[in-house]
Simulated assay, not measured.
Amino acid sequence: MSSEALASRVELATVDSTNAEAFRQAPDLRGPLWILAGEQTAGKGRRARAWASPPGNFHASLVQRITEPPARLGLRSFVAALALYDAFQALTGLGAGFALKWPNDVLLNGGKLTGILLEASGQTLVIGIGVNLIAAPPAETLEPGAVAPVSLLAETGLRITPARFLDALAPAMEDWEARLRADGFAPLREAWLSRAARLGERIIARTGTETREGIFETIDHEGNLILRMSGGAIAIPAADVFF
């Protein structure tokens, strides 16, 4: 992706969902396109959960065409997480406090700051990103054991507009995407692990059918969570992680 292509963006005052709008824009796509909305009325997170989208927070989606196997498309969650980490550090100047939670969250001071949702249809990939820039949803709206949400404003005192945040995020996304295409997942895996939350500690990985508890050992070359349990290490491709 070129920086010229990534500079393309559509800014909307309100929309049902930036991911939904991204798919509506996809048939006329001429290059990667950002959809940035001031407010979402039907934002969603992973597993179709509702995502609170008040004005002042960041709600955006990047839509692009990528001709790769589905497993490779999933690696863009690491592209997005690393880019978010870089954007936060560039805008805040903070050297500590941020960490990456598998599979695709950014934490600040241990609280959940962002959410990432990947959706694909054919060769169209949409990366939806939500950031609690000024407000976080009440903790009581979360499922038991989930990481409590935080906002950038409450944790740092910094008020950053969605447009300014996208100005920092878009080039960071381009940089990590270029590294993935040129060098494969290995450098992204190394960078992600160096920023990982609870690496080497006991965590809980919960899918729709079962719950596993063990030591977060690493992620493998496909981005799977490697959890060491009493019977040995297992690879988990998708799960919700609890601390």
Rank of each mutant, 00 (worst) to 15 (best):
M1Y: 06
S2M: 02
E4C: 05
L6Y: 11
L12N: 02
T14W: 00
V15W: 00
N19Q: 09
E21V: 11
A22S: 14
Q25K: 08
A26M: 12
A26D: 10
A26N: 07
P27V: 05
P27G: 04
L29S: 10
L29E: 09
G31W: 01
G31Q: 11
I35G: 03
L36F: 05
T41I: 04
T41H: 06
A42T: 07
A42I: 01
G43I: 02
K44M: 09
A52V: 06
A52D: 09
P54R: 12
P54S: 14
G56Q: 12
L62G: 08
V63Y: 02
R65Q: 13
I66R: 14
T67C: 14
P69W: 02
P69L: 01
P69T: 05
A71L: 14
R72G: 13
G74M: 01
L75G: 01
F78W: 02
V79K: 09
A80N: 07
Y85P: 04
D86C: 13
A87I: 09
Q89N: 09
A90I: 09
L91F: 06
T92N: 04
G93I: 02
L94I: 10
G97P: 00
A99I: 03
V106L: 15
V106D: 01
N109I: 01
L113D: 00
I116H: 02
I116N: 01
E119Q: 15
A120F: 03
A120I: 09
G122N: 11
G122R: 14
G128C: 06
G130V: 05
P144G: 03
A146I: 03
A148R: 06
S151H: 01
S151W: 00
S151M: 06
L152G: 07
T156A: 01
G157S: 00
R159K: 15
I160H: 04
T161D: 13
P162D: 06
A163S: 14
R164D: 14
F165N: 08
L166C: 11
D167F: 06
L169R: 02
P171M: 08
A172S: 11
E174R: 10
E174D: 13
D175W: 01
L180A: 08
D183T: 13
G184M: 09
P187G: 12
L188R: 00
E190G: 14
A191V: 10
L199S: 05
G200E: 08
G200N: 02
E201G: 10
R202T: 15
I203F: 10
A205K: 01
T209C: 05
T211K: 11
T211G: 08
T211I: 12
T218R: 13
T218L: 02
E222N: 12
L225M: 07
L227K: 03
M229E: 15
S230F: 12
S230H: 12
G231F: 12
A235V: 04
A235K: 13
P237N: 07
P237A: 10
A238D: 15
D240N: 14
